[in-house]
Design a protein around this nucleic acid. Structure first.
Lengths: 333, 333
DNA sequence: TTGTACGCGTTATCAC
DNA sequence: GTGATAACGCGTACAA
């Protein structure tokens, strides 16, 4: 059943049927009804494949995730999907597993017109390549920072977020604060490090390399590094982990070696995922507005799809300190 | 740049170019090279829109999720995506938010040829409607059970899974075991209830309605219901929650009211999500092979896409008891 | 081994 | 308001 069949049955032309389907106002009410009747009677559904070819668009966008198992990305996608849905776009997810070749191949879907635009996250591709793609195709970076012209992006101010977290820990009376950073050499990791160091400098406290853990990916790493930190001659009195899962690893470790979290040693996370409320003690953290970032990312992409000439945009979202049980004023402060 | 341009530049026909693009062996090596050279030189990429119309397929499948925020679905999608990727299919995600109208509209994408097949999860649609769609289009149910002809499905044996969990708890010496079931009136919830009751009957223990909580959705509910359970004149000595998040709520509550989990009261979850290892004590649970279920679901769908006439299939996956710290032999057993 | 010619289903243009 | 017709880019049956 195709548009020509409907036209014949309604004794009109394909053009008119198409107009009805697209709510073109210049169709006589009587004709419209006749066509709609036939459509209803036959159960005709328009074939999107033909439509897409004619309009030279796919109606889908691509979201390239490093992994979907991290709830952070799930939440961002939730925002993207919600917003895309409103504009009638479908969201195709592609998992890069942080492999350059995968991401490259996935971005090719822009060139083959399989998707009308793409949202990428912490990218493993060089900025040059990204920039070249963005010159020709709608491309947006979400939850990350880029120097690239043409690539719009949205993220929080990571330097300030960590700085604010540190200020809070310092205000509790901590003098020995460790931080645990991620593994992948991304701009935001550098920015977080800077925030950590700035806060210490302003407080006239030393920056101790043994307190600055890097190459930490997940829960298990958080657990292991915490053990090492606590074995130092002068262990820290607070640990600021730059992800909640890592912080959960810290807490797990401290619980096991009998150190009271939230009195003897404070722990702070980053992201504010569901987990924070589930562990004991509950986890103080920095909130990232992930759903909103996803929504903003889609909106920026949509704008680019509608008019590729729009200039690049940066939307910096607000972070927020969420205080829970894992941090408390020091007794001897 | 389209296929005709390449044909002209390579001094051949569009048919031959198309053959080269599709690795048709009956092209002279010399011609093939000439075409490939031009393709490389011009950076030509084939337009998928034209191709899709011609082949009357979209190259995408749809995954209709109740929500993407539950890590369970994220893990299933991981399996689906992985497998789809191998076959060159894209995965479009659509979130139904458990709304009938949403799900219905999303399934329409099959009729409009926007997707070549669909995987649905715990569906809120009546079986009749699902069955009708499945007669015409490739449709698969993942992590759920259905009576529908035409709808292939994959899931674990939920009755036996709960039964096995109960047998384990009984073997530890428990005589008063509560269970906390979900909210949505799905077949699998009924099956789990049956498993719970069968185990009690076989052990000649009474089935106490006050120990059978229902309408429990998430962490917070688990927390609240546990409080109520422990306020009973005869509180249970073990709680079997039919989701890990709910179980985490139980543990949280017990921790707070000073009841030792894993000695005074045992707690058991369901699903084996990451969380189980992160909380204290770690959570005994029933593992569902979620990634594998996603992979199987895609494979079944793929088979249907290739040949819609294939008969309906059911793949029952193995569950597994994972023992951790939240359960232990009772002292006085 | 290659080329010609047509059709996939829709929308846009133009003429009426 | 409406209808005829030409694209959109590709794949393939058929002929050579």
């Amino acid at each position: 059943m195709k548009i020509t069949d409907i036209a014949k049955l309604a004794k009109t032309s394909t053009a008119t049927v198409s107009r009805v389907l697209n709510n073109d106002p210049r169709v006589k009410e009587e004709t419209r009804q006749r066509v709609l009747d036939i459509i209803k009677k036959t159960g005709y559904k328009r074939n999107t494949l033909g439509r897409n070819l004619r309009k030279m668009r796919s109606g889908n966008i691509l979201a390239i995730l490093p992994t979907i198992l991290n709830p952070i990305y799930a939440r961002i996608i939730d925002g993207v999907e919600r917003q895309a849905n409103k504009s009638g776009y479908g969201v195709i997810i592609a998992v890069s597993h942080r492999k350059k070749e995968n991401e490259r191949k996935q971005l090719e879907m822009l060139q083959t017109k399989e998707v009308d635009g793409a949202i990428t996250f912490v990218s493993s591709l060089d900025e040059q390549f990204l920039g070249e793609m963005a010159r020709e195709y709608p491309l947006v970076l979400c939850a990350g920072f880029t120097h690239c012209e043409n690539v719009s992006y949205t993220c929080i101010d990571n330097e300030k977020a960590v700085y604010d977290g540190m200020k809070y820990l310092l205000s509790l009376g901590h003098k020995r604060i460790a931080c645990i950073n991620h593994k992948f050499s991304k701009v935001y990791e550098y920015q977080r490090k800077m925030g950590y160091e700035r806060a210490l400098k302003e407080a006239r406290l030393p920056i101790r390399p043994e307190y600055m853990i890097t190459n930490c990916t997940d829960f298990k790493d958080g657990y292991n590094y915490t053990k090492k930190l606590m074995e130092l001659p002068e262990p820290p009195t607070a640990i600021f982990a730059f992800s909640d899962k890592i912080a959960a690893g810290c807490i797990k470790c401290l619980n096991e070696i009998g150190v009271k979290v939230g009195s003897e040693v404070d722990v702070m996370g980053f992201d504010n995922i569901e987990l924070c409320e589930m562990i004991t003690p509950t986890l103080t953290t920095i909130n990232q507005p992930l759903e909103e970032m996803g929504m903003v990312a889609f909106d920026m992409l949509y704008e680019k799809i509608k008019n590729i000439k729009t200039t690049r945009k940066a939307v910096i979202m607000d972070h927020k300190l969420i205080i829970r049980q894992s941090t408390r004023p020091m007794k001897n402060a």
